[in-house]
């Protein structure tokens, strides 16, 4: 430890003061290295820390905005909304949770699907909005994923999905569990047609999403340092009563254990996915 680092704790302000010192909107703080970054610069860098390359969570719409070519985009099923068949209520109504999430994110539910192209390669791209109830999968996410598959089938083009989800949406109870079966079944059709499905696992991809379509890609790509797994680390710790190994359930761990094909930096995602899709569908290099 250098003399400067020794001094740091006394210089550094505590958590609550930090917030006061960072004006909302103008500056952002890296979750990992605590660097204070000018927000516009961070967004230009696709929410990857300019100091340590840590990949922060990025809103779904902004992700697709950067990923797809500007021309020829059309959003698929943007108006789907959950109809809350169980009238689920804990200490809050599911309906109210939905409205709050819609207000906070400006989205109708946790998955956005857009047909478009990447460097001229036509494809359907889907992305999870993690801020919408933890990116949880209920009826709307399941149905939208199926529509994404159907659009890919209709146009004979690849499907790419960026997952970021805590898993199934509890408030839709068994209906949400069955979305795992529904989405996985849809992929049998895509596969039979010989169309690629590229699954991109981003932080975090857990539970019912990871245990269904997200792990059924022809190619599995992860962003660096993403948490990916079936059970949450806390649940596992409580079950096995052991300390979890260093880096457990992170992208690098999954690569080592053979669960994914590659880890790609978000800033290279466009180039490399365009290239992969072009090769898998016998098109010239984009």
């Amino acid at each position: 430890m250098s003399w400067f680092e020794k001094l740091l704790p006394s210089i550094r302000t505590s958590g609550s003061d930090d917030k006061k010192n960072v004006p909302e909107g103008l500056w952002a703080k890296c979750d990992k290295c605590d660097a204070i970054i000018y927000r516009a610069e961070l967004e230009r860098n696709l929410d990857v820390c300019t100091k340590c390359d840590h990949h922060m969570r990025i809103p779904a719409r902004r992700r697709l905005e950067h990923f797809l070519d500007e021309e020829g985009r059309s959003e698929i099923a943007p108006d789907l909304e959950s109809s809350d068949p169980l009238k689920f209520k804990d200490h809050k109504k599911y309906k109210d949770r939905l409205s709050a999430a819609q207000k906070a994110t400006g989205e109708k539910d946790a998955l956005i699907v857009i047909k478009g192209s990447v460097k001229g390669v036509d494809l359907v791209a889907a992305a999870f909005e993690f801020r919408f109830m933890g990116g949880s999968m209920g009826s709307v996410v399941g149905e939208k994923f199926v529509r994404a598959v159907n659009t890919a089938l209709e146009h004979n083009i690849p499907l790419v999905c960026f997952s970021a989800s805590g898993g199934a949406r509890m408030q839709e109870a068994l209906i949400s569990l069955l979305q795992m079966a529904k989405t996985s079944a849809a992929l049998t059709r895509l596969s039979r047609r010989g169309l690629p499905f590229i699954s991109v696992l981003t932080d975090p991809t857990m539970g019912g999403v990871s245990a269904s379509f997200a792990m059924l890609g022809d190619i599995h790509i992860a962003e660096p340092g993403a948490l990916i797994g079936f059970a949450g680390p806390r649940v596992i710790e409580q079950t096995v009563r052991e300390q979890l190994p260093e880096g457990f359930q992170r992208s690098e761990f999954l690569l080592e254990h053979g669960a994914i094909d590659m880890i790609i930096d978000r800033r290279e995602m466009r180039d490399r996915i365009a290239s992969l899709c072009a090769m898998m569908t016998h098109q010239p290099a984009p």
Partner: peptide, 26 residues
């Protein structure tokens, strides 16, 4: 439920479940 353990995660619990959903569908 499926076992939430360290080894289970290392050996791909998610993928194992997902694959069965796929296989059963067809």
């Amino acid at each position: 439920g499926a076992y939430p353990g360290i080894g289970a995660e290392e050996r791909g619990q998610s993928e194992a479940i997902a694959r069965n959903l796929y296989v059963l569908a067809e």
